[in-house]
Design a protein around this nucleic acid. Structure first.
Lengths: 96, 96
DNA sequence: CTATGTCTTACTGTAAAAGGTAAGATGGCT
DNA sequence: AGCCATCTTACCTTTTACAGTAAGACATAG
């Protein structure tokens, strides 16, 4: 299963969009008209199959009347509490 | 001047990235190696001239060791406090 | 004035997002 | 079974992100 972090992020964001849209009783066509994004494109984004651009997500958030960060919180598990803080991960010296 | 909201969002996000990168003493080439995103692409993103994909922003946030939402907060002024909440804005009936 | 470092911009090629349309699911409901 | 609403997927076209490279700006040294 080991879904990589980027796939996981797209899945999470898509699920949040879908949950918000459903919570407001909107269908895909209605959100499509509110955002100017096509129904098929929204479907791909909500199912985590498309890596949307920033302004695309912003239009969705705006149409749903939620702040953009509400779609993005806890992105790929890089929240402070979850990161060891001791494990420095990568070191610039390796690249310089 | 009336910069449209999307341009404003890209500018803001770019400025946050640059501020964080500078705050960590990294130059573009170093961040490019950490993220796998080319220097020119990072430059365009930081100057608000490119509409990056979600996973691109996530890679930048990860390299800067900050949560993704830190790049995105206060997106286009659609924070709750700023929205009238009474003014419904648009009405789906107009589109149906 | 000549480097040196840093960022920007222009160009080419590839990949992928997004619109449009149409055709498949999928599920509910009579 | 049929219909209906909703979502999904596939195809095509246009646009744009991104990599790579190279060339330009633009300081700050020395």
């Amino acid at each position: 299963m080991t879904t990589d972090p980027e796939t996981h992020l797209l899945t999470q964001v898509g699920q949040r969009i879908r949950a918000r849209r459903a919570g407001q009783g909107l269908n895909l066509d209605q959100l499509a008209r509110l955002t100017g994004i096509s129904g098929p494109a929204l479907s791909l984004i909500e199912t985590g199959k498309r890596d949307a651009r920033l302004t695309t997500l912003a239009r969705i958030a705006s149409a749903l009347r939620i702040p953009l960060e509400a779609l993005v919180v806890d992105g790929a598990g890089q929240r402070d509490a979850e990161r060891p803080a001791s494990a420095e991960g990568y070191d610039l010296k390796d690249y310089q």
